[in-house]
Design a protein around this nucleic acid. Sequence first.
DNA 1: ATCTGTGAAAAGATTCACAGCC
DNA 2: GGCTGTGAATCTTTTCACAGAT
Lengths: 232, 232
Amino acid sequence: MPRGKQPNSSRSIWSPPLTVRRLSIYLRYLEELANQGQQTVSSRQLGQALGLTDAQVRKDLAWFGHMGRPGVGYRVAAMVEQLRAIFGTDKVSSVAVIGVGSLGRALLRYKGFLSKGFRLSAAFDVSPQRIGRSLGECVVQPLDELEKVIAQQGIRIVILAVPAAVAQEMADRLVRAGIVGILNFAPVTLTVPEGIAVIPVDMAVQLEQLAYMINAPRPGVSGRPRRRQSSG
Amino acid sequence: MPRGKQPNSSRSIWSPPLTVRRLSIYLRYLEELANQGQQTVSSRQLGQALGLTDAQVRKDLAWFGHMGRPGVGYRVAAMVEQLRAIFGTDKVSSVAVIGVGSLGRALLRYKGFLSKGFRLSAAFDVSPQRIGRSLGECVVQPLDELEKVIAQQGIRIVILAVPAAVAQEMADRLVRAGIVGILNFAPVTLTVPEGIAVIPVDMAVQLEQLAYMINAPRPGVSGRPRRRQSSG
DNA sequence: ATCTGTGAAAAGATTCACAGCC
DNA sequence: GGCTGTGAATCTTTTCACAGAT
């Protein structure tokens, strides 16, 4: 299936998946630079801070038109704005947390989502002991309310933090309720209809990957230079 | 730099990075099948459950020798054993949690790591209010004890759950203390020496990826069939 | 008939290297 | 001088398709 060639200067652009992963990382670092008052940044500086080559940074950023100026670099503030628009996080959107075990509670208490464009505005659980408890800026509600609250608040994304055994049936129910994106912390692969996005986050899997990297280091590597962390 | 061709039947094998990511997912599913008492599984069944093609499953599993039998499939139990050996999780290893904020506490309380080969056996924090508190199976210790405990317990992997502002300096200290793998929950890119493995896990970044997928769906997709979640 | 293992082809991603702008 | 944008080359990953094992 053919896909358009590189640059594209209008809104809501398609970019290759691995590029999109890095765009988030660029954005995070550019926000830091903006806070520090830095005006412009070169592909070289970005690459060094993030463990990428300068060529790769330029290719990635070239996906949405001519953003850099030769001899100068990229304008930090403009870049942040454009990246947020690409992710659709220039406006804050509401997110529900399904399952308020220890992980769900930790996420509800985390203060960093809002500045990234996400407001955790509803929380649900089955357990009567948890219902009514106030966490972050929401009160835990019973699951009966799920469909109603999702519709009322226009929620399209949820964080799924329920036990593995019930994750698939809950995902089905969420999709019926109109959810289109699921951040899945349950250690199972979800099956969802076409058009629904799922990002899996399994911490045991991540530890396993780390164990592999330690036990079976990449061949041909022997060097001294400081490296940056791989993607995530 | 040339790399060996495909199959390799001895221990601790190199496989392509994207294959290794999937191996964890195969293992998770195979463990489930083993619990259900299933003896063998075909590449087709694995693929369907996990949203992959059967050819891809076969290529991935072929990296460590002839494990399947034509006309029959793969032996579930043998596969689980071999995958655990590849990840080095056939023996339990000790992991320390650095930073006992709400996320650190949630991880310490999570019961699922042990069966995956990881024991969270030490926890550290700066805050006097947190020190001495008992969480999961450990008592929170002051950071002064860090180097001593890491050496005593032979800890090689840590979960880093400290604020972004201090993550890099803590990573440097951990590396000096002999740590070789870091699961990094701080929303910054760490710079570490060659030979140290870092896996970044930034939940805001994951939500951002989800937002992108919802706002800019892949072109040329329109279908009906049920899909599985992408990798993670 | 079912299912694996694997070359060969296709698609995707990264690196190289350099023309051209500031 | 420094720096971007981008074709061309290289490397990696996925898909195809089928020989051969059970």
